[in-house]
Amino acid sequence: MTDLSYKYYQSHSKLGFIGQDGQQKLTQARVLIVGAGGLGCPCLLTLAGCGIGTIGIADFDVVSVSNLHRQQLYTVDDVGKSKISIAKQRLLQHNPLLTINEHSLLVARDNVLDLLKEYDIIVDGTDNFAVRYLINDACVYLDKPLVYGAIYQTEGHVTVFNYRQSATLRCLFPEPEAETVVPSCADVGAYNVVTGIIGIMMANEVVKIIVGSSDILINKLVSYDALSAGIRTIAYRENAKSREISIKRFTAGNEATDLSVDEFLILDPDSYRLIDVREDWEHDEFNIGGEQIAMAKFKRYDFSAYAKSDKLILYCLQGLRSRSAAQFLRESGFINAISLRGGLNAYLALK
């Protein structure tokens, strides 16, 4: 331990549950935070101060003015700049002893395993349930503990999934059929007090896992209400079938079920039929054509107007709903149903 690191971490080293041995464990740990937003910022700042030796930050977004009230790593001067680049710069100013890895990408099925595999602990700071399930499933498949936090206006929740085979996200919540089941902060608002508290609580669970605390939030969800200052704990159980579903997601057949935007753009428009699986209001805001059939309607929709041999290209915002929809159609006999990889986000990024 250098003189700088000794002085930097001396307060932590005096704590009984950390000590010098615990601080060394923190220094050697590798933690990935997915999402550098309202939850990710306070979590990152806290983990940097704790001395997590290697921190990975995964996010594809840029800073917007509407982020600033709750995302403390950024300033007005950062608007329009990459979140992960600014976050790395600010965290190293806060603690120059760290190694910080930037992962500028949209988390998707084809990159999530490679993203997660180099880290010891994963922190989910996203606000999209489809991505949350993807991260959860990858953590189960790779046997990585997952620290989970979520907020809804003035309420927040924290728990830890898959720590030493504990219960997972799928054990706690049934999977929604669409990304829009739970609205994002941009849709319903976010109280910055709650994002700060929950983000720091998530960092606390990371530290407890690393130092070997016996009181980690496994199989229990802590719920916090900022207006009443009430805290309650909700117990939940492991469901073996949930783990099987997660693992099957990455062990199922490897047949091509999606195509890239580059591949899509060179196709003859007459060679395929396009289907937007987002909700009506999403389609009305922006679309790239085709029929609109919301994912939630798939199980009861009459697809008799489509031939089983038709090449069906399905799209959504991020390519997650459309991938599920394509798999559903394949299982129903539409063998040429495929998803637009990365969805409209990837399409707009390329265009």
Rank of each mutant, 00 (worst) to 15 (best):
K7E: 08
K25W: 09
A138L: 09
D187Q: 13
S85H: 12
L274N: 02
L15M: 13
A36C: 13
S104V: 01
S13I: 10
I335T: 15
L115E: 03
Y163K: 01
L146Q: 05
L329T: 02
G35W: 13
E291H: 06
Q89L: 04
M201L: 15
I18N: 00
F129M: 10
A178K: 08
Y224P: 05
H283L: 05
S271M: 09
S64F: 03
D3E: 15
G80F: 12
A296F: 08
K25Y: 11
H69S: 05
L274M: 07
L4F: 15
T54F: 00
T154P: 00
L39C: 10
L92K: 09
Y163F: 13
D61Q: 10
S271L: 07
V160Y: 12
S64T: 14
P176C: 02
L68P: 11
V160K: 10
T154Q: 03
V261F: 10
F250G: 00
Q165H: 14
Q153G: 01
Y306W: 12
V107C: 00
D215H: 13
I210N: 01
D284L: 15
A296G: 04
D215I: 02
S324N: 08
S223K: 14
E102S: 11
L68E: 05
C43K: 07
N204Q: 10
A235Y: 04
K81A: 02
Q20E: 15
F286I: 07
M295S: 14
L227H: 11
Y347H: 08
A337Q: 08
L134Y: 02
C41R: 09
Y272R: 02
S304N: 07
L113K: 07
Q93F: 06
F60K: 06
A108N: 11
A240Q: 15
T168W: 09
D59Q: 06
R70E: 10
F298A: 01
K311I: 12
N254K: 15
G19I: 08
Q89T: 11
L274C: 04
S271Y: 14
S332R: 15
L32R: 04
V206C: 09
S85P: 00
V188D: 05
W281P: 00
I33C: 11
G22H: 07
A203Q: 05
K351C: 13
D302K: 08
E118N: 14
L312E: 04
T2Q: 11
F334Q: 02
V207G: 03
P174F: 10
G189V: 09
L267W: 14
F334P: 08
N101G: 00
N162P: 06
A235T: 12
S213I: 04
L348F: 08
E285T: 13
L105P: 01
I338W: 14
Q165K: 14
V65T: 14
L312V: 09
Y306P: 02
V140T: 07
R132G: 05
G51C: 02
V147E: 03
H103A: 01
I86Q: 09
S213W: 06
